[in-house]
Design a protein around this nucleic acid. Structure first.
Lengths: 228, 228
DNA sequence: GCTGCTTTGTGAACGTGTGCACGAGTGCCT
DNA sequence: AGGCACTCGTGCACACGTTCACAAAGCAGC
């Protein structure tokens, strides 16, 4: 059949789950599983079966009633919808602790996001090689973005340098940014930004821990209220 | 006044934003700002002013009409609600690329989450020192958790080892887990898990990039559909 | 103390996301 | 061929989250 329809908008919540389904399906495929039911996929993904079916229905009707979904075909469809039919090179700004770890983390390239370059503003870091990628000066950013056709940038700088990094990425032509710095970036409306903030995640866990403790005040006050 | 009320449950979406407000307020406080309006706070946080007010109203009525919120007092209240009046030591499982970066990332300790220990299952890594913290064997996990009263664990292992790491953390007595491995962890219901998956974030960006490109199929097919 | 300006706190409307429940389609067995 | 067991796709009701809009409350100046 002709699967190329003018696609309806897919809800954000669904888009966020598709990568999870994709990973599970890929694993299952590797293990020789040909068909999978929404129930099984839901179990593996830690979600509700109805949600799985609704999510997948946004891609089209690719399941078979009474049978389930064909793993390989579903993998293909999800990859297509997510734009994973080709690689998306990324450029990392900031060669500190995190930038180095990201560059060294093989998972990026494997999953279709090869590191096209890593840059830093500090001449002391420029030139060193991190797992095969040489750190270049941030002034070379435009050139890297253009020659390698990079559209995704990763901000792995300290908070104080993040906005400048984002500005440079945008000026260089990047249209999506993954931000690890604990800052709300100001960017043109057309630029897509996603933020990963480790401290925020830990603080959310802290909230639940504190609540678990009964909300009782068992802490030694380290901060003082400024007024009564 | 007596600020300790039996607190109503705070919506998840609000809990996720409180840390952002907290960071902004702390910064503003450091810059000498005493009072701040919901509008200004919203601007700095990249959200809607009404949302800020509603979020803060869950903490109680700590603003002053016609004036705004007293920064220092609000910081205190948010910290109290998030359980940040005392430190929460964390233990990191996995001393690979990511584990090392996390241990080395000063932001943790600074924000009230000191690294109580980092463990690995590989004897080759045990003993090495990462930014002041010595890597210990994973068998020592229970001891670290107990002596340092750790309730938050961080899984920074490869996907294949993540479930085992989580099991060990739970057995050792940890009640909250921050998971960086691309796996859905199976844990007892009482355990709070948050997941940070870099590949998922990139794939979400990829979706938007692909969509931006008009959804046109300009990619060279790297995957084949399994069936018509 | 009164007037006018500012900003909070919140009720109500709206939009998004979730989950149930069931009709509809498919394969298998007799 | 008919019946049965299974699973998808989706309408519907509900829960959650967001935003608007406005009354209530406080401050400043006279």
């Amino acid at each position: 059949m002709a699967p190329e329809r003018a696609r309806r908008r897919i809800p954000d919540a669904t888009v966020a789950r598709l990568p999870v389904y994709l990973r599970i399906l890929t694993e299952q495929g590797d293990e020789g599983v040909d068909n999978i039911s929404s129930e099984r996929l839901a179990e593996l993904g830690g979600v509700n079966a109805a949600k799985v079916r609704k999510d997948l229905s946004y891609l089209g009707s690719y399941g078979t009633r009474g049978v389930g979904y064909e793993v390989a075909y579903l993998v293909y469809q999800i990859r297509r919808e997510l734009g994973l039919t080709h690689d998306w090179p990324v450029v990392i700004v900031g060669a500190g602790n995190l930038g180095q770890a990201l560059a060294g983390y093989g998972g990026f390239g494997e999953r279709g996001f090869p590191v096209a370059g890593i840059v830093d503003i500090d001449d002391g870091k420029v030139g060193s090689v991190l797992s095969g990628v040489r750190v270049r000066h941030i002034d070379e950013l435009p050139q890297i973005v253009q020659t390698k056709r990079v559209s995704i940038g990763v901000v792995a700088t300290p908070a104080s340098a993040a906005q400048d990094a984002a500005d440079r990425l945008v000026r260089a032509g990047v249209t999506s940014i993954l931000n690890f710095a604990p800052v709300v970036l100001a960017v043109p409306r057309a630029i897509e930004v996603r933020k990963v903030d480790l401290a925020v995640e830990l603080q959310i866990l802290s909230y639940h821990e504190q609540r678990r403790a009964g909300g009782a005040i068992h802490a030694v006050g380290t901060t003082r209220p400024a007024s009564a």
